[in-house]
């Protein structure tokens, strides 16, 4: 054998050959510690970002509220911070945001839920394998393209039935936002429904239930927690959607809940101001941060409410 002819190896040399010399072990331990610290700082960086976002919104909004009383901000029914006779009531922007979101949800929730039930309980696995990713493509199209769609296709189409509908309105963009959020409801809803144990489904079928009865009376209630999570996500997407509204709803603050009228949402107002060239630290500049803070608070409030709701409906198998 070869080993009998060579010099017997010293313990240190053997360790070195196997990569275990004391220096090497020490170095590896160091690399190990350093890499963990590096990875941790990457994870902790997300907190830095959050502090940055909330911090800058609060700081700039405080500048805004030095000029504008919170009372006026909440009760005035006009929003015109850039006029000579400036008015600072956030109500019109909130009305626009709520109206567009409501229209969007009226489309996304029924259509999305029906799609989810159908994909989960009716379609064959092979068909589902193709249709689900295809549906998800709908939310992959950039929203600015959906804005084009709302302004140039959906609104003219609606005008055929409603001749009085103005070119800029909240109905068209609302419907389009609804369509682009359908995949969230459909995809996440379907995931939740298929996570319901098959035994429940089979039990219901054994009792002679039809597919519709199984879906509505067994699967939907059991998957309610997951489905409501999908609804919450859809809601926050619709609330924060910007480009569709900015292109097709007219960017004109209007205190109304009538979707046939043009109006501005919080997001559209921020875009409108950003398109102009506002001097830093002016009241107009600060107003977009105050508007952004309101949007963030609305989103957060709804997410917390959704979280509570989900906890209440959670079914554990």
């Amino acid at each position: 054998m070869a080993s009998t002819t060579t010099q017997p190896e010293s313990a240190a040399a053997a360790a070195r050959r196997r990569g275990r010399s004391p220096a090497m072990v020490r170095r590896r331990r160091l690399v190990d510690k350093a890499s963990e610290a590096l990875l941790f700082s990457a994870a902790a960086f997300s907190i830095v970002i959050t502090v940055g976002v909330v911090g800058i919104l609060v700081v700039e909004s405080m500048g805004f509220f030095e000029h504008v009383s919170i009372w006026d901000f909440l009760t005035d029914t006009q929003w015109a911070p850039l006029f000579d006779d400036a008015r600072y009531g956030i109500a019109p922007l909130i009305a626009g945001t709520v109206t567009v979101t409501a229209v969007a949800l009226c489309v996304a929730i029924p259509v999305g839920t029906v799609c989810a039930v159908w994909l989960s309980e009716y379609s064959s696995p092979r068909l589902r394998e193709v249709l689900k990713p295809a549906l998800e493509l709908l939310s992959a199209v950039p929203t600015v393209v959906f804005g084009y769609f709302a302004l140039l296709i959906v609104t003219p189409f609606l005008q055929k039935f409603m001749p009085d509908l103005p070119g800029f309105n909240m109905l068209g963009p609302g419907i389009v936002i609804g369509l682009l959020t359908v995949p969230y409801v459909a995809s996440l809803g379907e995931d939740a429904m298929r996570a319901v144990p098959t035994a429940l489904r089979e039990g219901a079928y054994a009792m002679g239930a039809t597919r519709l009865q199984v879906a509505l009376k067994v699967i939907l209630p059991a998957a309610l927690s997951g489905i409501s999570a999908a609804y919450v996500l859809t809601f926050s997407r619709a609330l924060g959607e910007t480009m569709v509204v900015a292109i097709a709803a007219g960017m004109q603050p209007n205190f109304t809940f009538d979707p046939r009228e043009p109006a501005a949402t919080i997001t559209a107002y921020i875009v409108q101001v950003s398109l102009g060239d506002l001097p830093h630290a002016s009241i107009g500049y600060q107003s977009i941060f105050a508007a952004g803070l309101v949007l963030l608070l609305m989103t957060l409030a709804f997410n917390i409410a959704g979280y509570r709701l989900r906890k209440r409906f959670r079914e554990v198998y």
């Binding site: 994870a43 902790a44 997300s46 907190i47 970002i49 959050t50 940055g52 976002v53 800058i56 919104l57 700081v59 700039e60 996500l233 926050s236 609330l239 924060g240 910007t242 997001t267 921020i270 875009v271 950003s274 977009i288 941060f289 952004g292 949007l295 963030l296 989103t299 957060l300 997410n303």
Partner: peptide
């Protein structure tokens, strides 16, 4: 736990708010 909750919340921040952060900061 704080980092995890935080990341979940970041995912829900409307995209325009990121723009405001970028502008201000």
């Amino acid at each position: 736990a704080a980092i995890e909750v935080n990341i979940a919340n970041l995912a829900g921040v409307p995209s325009i708010v990121w723009g405001l952060m970028a502008l201000g900061l």
